[in-house]
Amino acid sequence: MLAYSIRRLIALIPVLIGMSLIVFGIIRAIPGDPALAILGQKATPEALKQLRHALGLDKPWYTQYFSFITDLLKGDFGTSLRTHAAIRQEIWPHLAATIELSVLAMLIAVVVGVNLGILSAWKQNSVIDVASMVIALVGVSMPVFWLGLMAQWIFSIKLGWLPSIGRENIRDPVTAITNFYIIDTLLAGRIDQFWEIIRHLILPSLALATIPMAIIARMTRSSMLEVLRSDYIRTARAKGQKMFWVVYKHALKNAFIPVLTVIGLQTGLLLGGAILTETIFGWPGIGSYIYDAIQYRDYPVIQSGILLVAFIFVIINLIIDLLYAAFDPRIKYK
């Protein structure tokens, strides 16, 4: 297991280098003069020259790439063209906001999705089964930004139950410590603020969770159906164990591996979906950060944002890969 983990880590190196090359290439691959594309046609030659120098575009590409990588390894993401601030400092609160939102959404998706799938498989062809599969089928077909808009319209505009945008009550801002506001409000002992944060989280995380939830439910159902027909399940039932324990103890453990794969893949979709969800709910996460950067052609920010999200995705997939072994000792690694 340890040897396998190390091998997996080493195998990541070429992927990470490739990713850095692609992200490095974003600004260089702009057709024509990147500086002109960023500043627009009215830019003065001096300004263009200055920007080229600031971005390092006046040096040969391998020198540029080398300094790009050494900067990255030092944790230096460069400077935003718009705010002139160090991206490293700007990006963390955004990243924390996205992580808070995505983790909650994934939690909802996994807990609800897995249980919905189990219930459907357990009571196959029942009303619950049919209903949850219809929801799942429709769920995978709906665009996440539309679900978000509809949730916003119904629950905050029509019913007025929940706030429609933002992460906190702007009249009562949270004092950032870790930038995970759930934790920060608890650290500050502000239970009222904590509930306010939760209220802001509900709509965006539900909108973001819907599609992964639907896919996880479908996967769990088909995987469970297969497992429930196996001999050892019949044995477990034959010795008089309650169906609830058979399902949750014996069957789920074995049915969970394909579900785990789907969860890993869905994390990528979820991170992508976060970009869309954040723009709808005015969530100040990394998606909004990238989105704003695109509007202002702030390429260093676009690069850093994309690289960071992709990096997180790679790490999550690595963790999922390693989790397989924990869940299924039958998997043998060469």
Binding site: I275, A310, F313
Partner: peptide
Amino acid sequence: SRIFDIMLAFPSILLAIAIVAILG
């Protein structure tokens, strides 16, 4: 295969955004 691995290492919509950011 390595190129495929690298491309699949990006969440797909993110890679699409990157490409459009380049091409306009």
